[in-house]
Each structure stands twice: as structure tokens, then as C-alpha cells.
Design a protein around this nucleic acid. Structure first.
Ligand SMILES: [Zn+2]
Ligand SMILES: [Zn+2]
Ligand SMILES: [Zn+2]
Ligand SMILES: [Zn+2]
Lengths: 138, 138
DNA sequence: CATGTGCATGGGAATCATTCTCACACAGCT
DNA sequence: AGCTGTGTGAGAATGATTCCCATGCACATG
């Protein structure tokens, strides 16, 4: 009943997808698809822009990458751990720290239940200026 | 030192801005600028699309309206109370409930301080399916 | 109330991220 | 090596949001 075979991913391993994931592994903060595309080009592992978008989408679907849609109209991607977590992001340099807050998990479930909501999900991000950036021009 | 006169708003009251705010007052959930523009047109109070965007931006700046940028590339606006709060939003019908969680406010400040981050802000939204929508085809 | 000044408006062009199209390349399997 | 269906890439297409700029109107003034 619970869709036993959710269409086996059967992701094909290509140079492009490997390049995107390796690049993300080397970077620390969230980066836009356009940025990643440019970085790959500089680096030599040139990959088509559309392919970068497709690879990122696949990685997100597989839970290997997190996507952040805050602020402007440019999504940012980051290689993250597969367990549920939230982010503390520096507005200036993009440095990111994965953080967890068990209480908020419970709170979200409870508040949703109290209002009769089901199928609950939540998004929690914290933005700020990291020490280096706060210190004069870090 | 704390910028005493932050350029007095001096917002001019026009038919268009009034129409946008009144429409938002009648609606319950988050709506996109395009939706609002269409609704205004139907209703008769036709307002240029660019003007709708400008009015919404002004309202957001004045803290009278909240903007939600989750999911797709379409920002959603809603008339909200001016005090800090978060949202419990129905993915299906858009129904929205303003909620507060004092603990998370403290947690965000603490976690940020622990990592040397200053100038902290946070975003927390809860998504789900409301009772009406969950009930068969509400 | 008449008048002047400057912000506000609108609509069509411009911008920009993201997606689509589709012919061609190649990863994985036999 | 040969098949087959997925993955790729370049450019077009899409769609939301912003820009431009000539005209309109809110509002302070006398
Ligand atoms: Zn993450
Ligand atoms: Zn959580
Ligand atoms: Zn709100
Ligand atoms: Zn809060």
C-alpha cells in the first residue's frame, strides 16, 4: 500500500554530476547554481548550466544537498549531512553552521496538531554576521 | 549615532495603495503579487502590476505585511500583526495562523552567540495540511 | 480655491534565474 | 562490441520582478 517500489533512483554516474558534488564538498557555505556553474568553468570541469541545475535538483532529491531560498530570487545550495538540521548562516561571507534544536521539532508538531494541521514540515534558519566578518572587514 | 532621523517615510496616500491594503485585509492566507493584481482588476479597482509590487514592498518595509518566499519562485504576501511571530500555513488552501514560540527566540539568540554571530535574525515557518483540506477533498 | 513641486503611476521593455527542447553522447548491461 | 534509455548542452522559452520615463495627482502653500 505504501508504494513499495518508489521508482528506484538508478542515478547514472557521469563526469558532470561527480564534478558538481565534488565542488560542493570543497565549499563551505551556500552557493547559487550560477556561482557553481562559474566555478566549475574556471576550474576546467566545465558543465552546462542546465546540467548544473539538474544535478543539484537530483542531489536535493537524494537528500545530499540542502537548498536555501531566502532573500532574493536565487536559490543557494550546500552539501549537508543527511540528518535533519537547521542553519546558522553568515549574511556576509556565507559561512554556515549546521545546528539542531530538538525542542522546536516538538513545538512544530504540537502547534500544528493543536490547529488540526497534518503532514507537517518546518523551516528554520538563523541569519547573522559571523565573528570574522563582524571584526573590521574580516 | 543610531541614525536619529531614518528618512521620514512620508508615504503618500493614493487610491492604489489603499486598494492593495484593503484587499489584503479581506484575504486570509498568503497571496502572490500577481494574484493580488488579478483580484484588484476583477474587483474594479484596477492597479498597474508594477504599482502592486511597489505598494507591497512599501507595506513590507513599514512592517504591515509579511512576505513568504518558500517553495517556487513566487513571493507571497499577507496582512499580519506588527508584532514578531511565525506562521502555520496550509499548503493546499493557504489558510494561515500566526503563532509564537518564545523558546525558539531565545534559542536562536543563544546558538548564534555561541558561534560568534551577531546581528541575528531568524525565519521559522511551519507547513502542513489544514483540517478542511485533509478531510476528503475539503 | 488656484498653483507648484515632487513622489506616484502604468505599461511595456528589460533583467534574470530557472526550465524546456531536442538532437546527440555515453553509462551500464548483454 | 552493440543496444537502449538516460544524461548532456546550447539556446530558446518562461515567468516573476524591476526598470524607464512621460504623465498624473497628493499635498503643502498663500
Ligand atoms: Zn543543511
Ligand atoms: Zn527541525
Ligand atoms: Zn505574519
Ligand atoms: Zn521568532
Amino acid at each position: 500500500m505504501s508504494s513499495p517500489d518508489t521508482a528506484p533512483p538508478a542515478r547514472r554516474q557521469t563526469r558532470q554530476r561527480t564534478a558538481v558534488l565534488e565542488l560542493l564538498d570543497e565549499l563551505d557555505g551556500f552557493r547559487s547554481a550560477q556561482d557553481l556553474h562559474a566555478l566549475l568553468r574556471e576550474r576546467g570541469d566545465s558543465v552546462g548550466l542546465a546540467t548544473v541545475y539538474r544535478a543539484l535538483q537530483a542531489l536535493v532529491d537524494d537528500g545530499l544537498v540542502d537548498v536555501l531560498r531566502s532573500g532574493e530570487g536565487e536559490a543557494a545550495y550546500r552539501r549537508c549531512s543527511p540528518v535533519h538540521h537547521h542553519h546558522l548562516v553568515c549574511r556576509a561571507c556565507g559561512r554556515t553552521v549546521e545546528v539542531a534544536d530538538p525542542p522546536v521539532e516538538r513545538w512544530a508538531a504540537r502547534i500544528a496538531a493543536e490547529h488540526g494541521f497534518a503532514d507537517v514540515q518546518h523551516e528554520l534558519e538563523v541569519f547573522g554576521t559571523c565573528g570574522s566578518c563582524a571584526a573590521g572587514r574580516g
